[in-house]
Design a protein around this nucleic acid. Structure first.
Length: 307
DNA sequence: ACGATTTGACCTGC
DNA sequence: GCAGGTCAAATCGT
């Protein structure tokens, strides 16, 4: 809750919102031909402009991100009380600093998922805590490959009080287990899952302990390209407004920060689509649109000065 | 036997 | 002192 480095944080939020607005604009422009009718003139200039705004915002975010990130890293190395000798004598730096980070409210990337808490990664539960004011405990997971590959990715999962079918997932750190050593063993391949319409039910069928989302079980590894298998690309899809309606997408997992984009091997347009999707939720969620709001991920940038 | 999960204790910031 | 995050021994499942 504490807003560390307030100015940068606020700037980040503003830029993020501006970027999302641009993404919405871009999406709306993309839909225009479908609305007006096939063959209608595409406002290329406007779309280019929107894309330009998006790029500028991305760069601004990246700049802010890196700047505050180093700031954060520097401040996180500040003094801390000595660990208890009888328990934590061996690795004081690692455990101590991490605990400090967490305790003082390290911000992660929050994602809301419906029906399942699976996201394609394999997690090991390491803790559970009852949270005051919440009906459900918070579950703490770390990457299964923490020991094998030193992957420090963590996540916290909490069932929504208002909608028990919704899991509020907060991601911390990035998956290094799937970034460098592809040669060793393919990482869990479906960090980004797009379900269609009835996905929620199949997700419910999924045993909660299973590491894979149901949509992965169908076709094996699923990446964002899955959507492009049905639609040549999300943007084209938006333009075409065909049967593969954006409104039918339920994006069940995403990490909006650029670092995670890299970690999930998203291409640029996937990233654009990813982000845009969230924006659509954010904007269209207000009312009149036909988008499936409930299923959409709600991005929460908080302050992107983590990592 | 081994790995994953549970759960109480511990640590830290507020 | 409290709440939240993590650790690690105990327990469970295979």
């Amino acid at each position: 809750m504490a807003m560390a480095s307030m100015p940068a944080c606020a700037a980040t939020e503003f830029v993020a919102k501006g970027r999302e607005s641009a993404a919405v604009l871009k999406a709306m422009l993309g839909q225009l031909p479908a609305v007006v009718g096939a063959g209608a003139t595409t406002p290329h200039g406007l779309r280019d402009l929107a894309e330009q705004i998006l790029r500028c915002c991305d760069r601004a975010l990246a700049a802010l991100h890196s700047g505050t990130g180093t700031e954060e890293a520097a401040s996180s190395s500040r003094k801390r009380k000595p660990e208890r000798e009888d328990r934590l004598a061996a690795p004081p730096a690692a455990t101590g600093s991490k605990r400090m980070r967490m305790s003082r409210g390290e911000r992660g990337t929050r994602v809301e998922k419906k029906g399942t808490m699976e996201d394609g990664f394999i997690w090991r539960k390491y803790g559970q805590k009852d949270i005051s004011g919440s009906n459900y405990p918070r579950l703490y997971f770390r990457c299964t490959y923490k020991d094998d590959r030193g992957c420090m990715a963590r996540r916290q999962v909490q069932q929504s009080d208002t909608d028990p079918g919704v899991y509020l997932i907060t991601y911390f750190d990035e998956h290094t287990c799937c970034r460098d050593d592809d040669a060793v063993e393919p990482p869990p391949p479906a960090p980004f899952v797009i379900n269609f319409g009835s996905s929620t039910a199949s997700s419910d069928d999924q045993p909660s302990g299973s590491p894979w989302p149901s949509s992965c079980d169908d076709d094996g590894p699923v990446e964002t390209h899955t959507s492009s298998a049905l639609c040549s690309s999300p943007e084209e899809e938006l333009q075409a407004g065909t049967s593969c309606n954006v409104a039918e997408f339920i994006v069940e997992q995403s990490t909006p920060v650029p670092e995670l984009m890299g970690m999930m091997h998203l291409t640029e347009w996937e990233w654009e689509w990813d982000r845009m999707d969230g924006c659509l939720d954010w904007e269209f969620g207000k009312g009149e649109s036909s988008f499936d709001i409930d299923g959409f991920v709600r991005y929460d940038f908080d302050c992107i000065d983590l990592f």
